Amino acid sequence: MPGARLTQEDRRRIAAGLTAGLGYGEIARELARPTSTVTREIARNGGPSGYRADNAQRATLRRSRRSKAGPARTPGGGVSAAHGRDPAAVGEFAAQFAELLVHTGLPRMVARVLTCLYVTDSGSLTAAELVQRLGVSPASVSKAIGYLAGQELVRREQDEDGRRERYVIDDDVWYRALLASAQRNAMIAEFTRGGADLLGAATPAGARLGTAAAFLEDTGAEIVRAVQRRRRNEDAARSAAAHRSAPG
């Protein structure tokens, strides 16, 4: 059934599909499952090159036992029952989301902290709350927050009493993160452009650096234009909605 958990036979068919070079969508259709289910399954169990059906089955059983032993330590624990949500389902989603982020290159603890903030309605947690929800040390949370703040993915703010620091994820977090990425591209492009001049634009090494600089400059400019275009579209949509809702 599409809504049921993957079985060991499902996992063997996923592994066989990957070996045969099938895409995630093709594998999902053969299993009569959503593509997102297959994508999460592969991402959290070694990726397309490292996926092994037996290992994935054992890992799933281990995660299931840990969830039963300590459900309050899963991301989203303690708040996910609001709005009629299933806490176990929210915890499972958060775990899968974190695994996907790990496979995009984020350190595991960074991915877990970011996901924990994402699935919290307030989008704001203290270090103590993150420690409790994730079941990790304060030092691990502090290091992850430092990384996320440096990438413009979270911001710090003080509680009303000024005694505790809260970590906040805003609705426009990806806008700011993309703009920060564009700025880093520009810095690297400027540096590599200088290297191309130093080595000589006509030399192989100089040409290589010059090509890298041009690519980074173009990519950074495209990111900025895309963010600005999206913001303009959203502003226009909000303005149109406000106009429609205004009294005649």
Rank of each mutant, 00 (worst) to 15 (best):
T60L: 04
G50E: 08
P71D: 10
Q57F: 02
I42Q: 15
D54W: 04
A53I: 12
Y51C: 12
P107Q: 12
R63H: 08
N55A: 14
A98D: 06
G47K: 01
T37P: 05
P71K: 13
P71Y: 11
A95L: 13
P48M: 05
F97K: 09
P107V: 01
V79S: 00
F97W: 10
L61K: 09
P34Y: 14
G46A: 08
N45R: 05
R108W: 02
R65S: 06
R65P: 03
P34L: 00
L100W: 02
A98I: 13
F97Y: 09
N45A: 10
R66N: 04
A94C: 15
A81P: 02
A95D: 13
T39S: 09
P34K: 12
A56L: 01
R73N: 03
P87E: 04
S80A: 14
R66W: 15
G77D: 03
G84W: 15
M109E: 10
A94Y: 14
A88H: 05
G76T: 10
L106D: 04
A72L: 09
R40I: 12
S67C: 05
A94H: 12
G47H: 03
A111Q: 05
P75T: 14
V79Q: 00
R58K: 11
A82E: 02
E99Y: 02
S49C: 03
I42W: 12
N45V: 04
P71V: 05
V102H: 12
Y51W: 10
A98G: 06
P107S: 09
D86W: 11
A88L: 07
S80L: 10
A43P: 08
R52Q: 12
